[in-house]
Design a protein around this nucleic acid. Sequence first.
DNA 1: GTTTAATTTAAACAATCGTTTAATTTTGCA
DNA 2: TGCAAAATTAAACGATTGTTTAAATTAAAC
Lengths: 206, 206
Amino acid sequence: MELNEKQIQILKVAEKLFAENGFDGTSVRNIAKEAGVNLAMISYYFGSKEKLLSTLLLYRMADFKIQINTVLSEDRGFIEKAEAIVGLAIKRIHRNRRMYKIVHFEYSNLSRNVNFNQYVEKKKENFKVIEVFIKEGQEAGVFSKNVNIPLMFSTITGTYFNFYYNKRFFQDMHNLQGEASIDDYIFNILTPHVQRTIKALLTYEE
Amino acid sequence: MELNEKQIQILKVAEKLFAENGFDGTSVRNIAKEAGVNLAMISYYFGSKEKLLSTLLLYRMADFKIQINTVLSEDRGFIEKAEAIVGLAIKRIHRNRRMYKIVHFEYSNLSRNVNFNQYVEKKKENFKVIEVFIKEGQEAGVFSKNVNIPLMFSTITGTYFNFYYNKRFFQDMHNLQGEASIDDYIFNILTPHVQRTIKALLTYEE
DNA sequence: GTTTAATTTAAACAATCGTTTAATTTTGCA
DNA sequence: TGCAAAATTAAACGATTGTTTAAATTAAAC
């Protein structure tokens, strides 16, 4: 898959509009207009609207994998590493929030003819990496046993997206105006909350 | 707002289809056909497709408020009460999962002309009730300070919905077939995970 | 039983949808 | 410069969209 600049421009506009208005709420004419290209170019480049979504999915998937090698190799305790990993995870989720939102809605839409295999594989890879780290922490006696790793991921990602899907509510509640103050909230309030939650969960003994 | 049986039938079908295929992915003809009513009846009863969504929102909103009075009045410890409240919350979220999914997508869709004020108010009421309970627990020395209550809600609701939005993934991973085994997973695996997480968070001291 | 109101229906409305066509322009290479 | 391939365009396609209409049917009131 080799994409030229114009194709990438179309993909980025499509990602924005799909995330804002949904796949069905976005017309190819909307995309073409905002991307500044002729309507027919989308069929010409991607074949169809659904294939455009599939291409977008593949294009963005490269960024779905957690990059925690540097964190793991550092000389820090398990708790500090867990904290750092959560921080990295939220950064990556926030960067890919639009793509995640699209996946959340379209992945559970059975009538959609889009291939999500790559998404599933990336997710499984992420679990494997974290699983190894947590088992090491358990053997070292730092982390408690019986932590459900897929659900721990759900807690991290889910907390972020429940904020994101209720953004207007949180904006109203905390007087957050503009993208910058939302980013501030995510990195200064939400991230510490999730870090605290995961640290608590990983060390909790009944 | 008084709805007859046929109107409620239409609302229920609309809720199902909106949740499955999105608001824009559902046509009024789809709704009319599945509800077994004439196409024009929807305009006749509700005025428009958007007003149908507004009516649905109001109709379902009654069930959004947490009912925890019985739990709070029981003679149990704060930890056990917190556990029970989380269990009730997940039950309620699961029961209203379709409505929540619709709200998640449409509430962040700015072009949609739907009134979400009632949704926001119900959310705030829920926070107030929980806030009182947690402050009591803090004063009793059981719960640790500095818990962000709206974000704790996000953690509960978010964990559930990250599971729900990746249902196909979890089904594949754990061989869950049919609605019954999904319900089993939610009540026997997911709910204990969230209860454990919240208990850990509420008692965590750095 | 008659009349008025409420309900239900099929048909039509204009607008928009995704996609295709065929003609034109631009590009890259000999 | 000439020519074939690639890119771009405006226009049209049939299908589907939400909504309205006006006529037909049923229910309720007197």
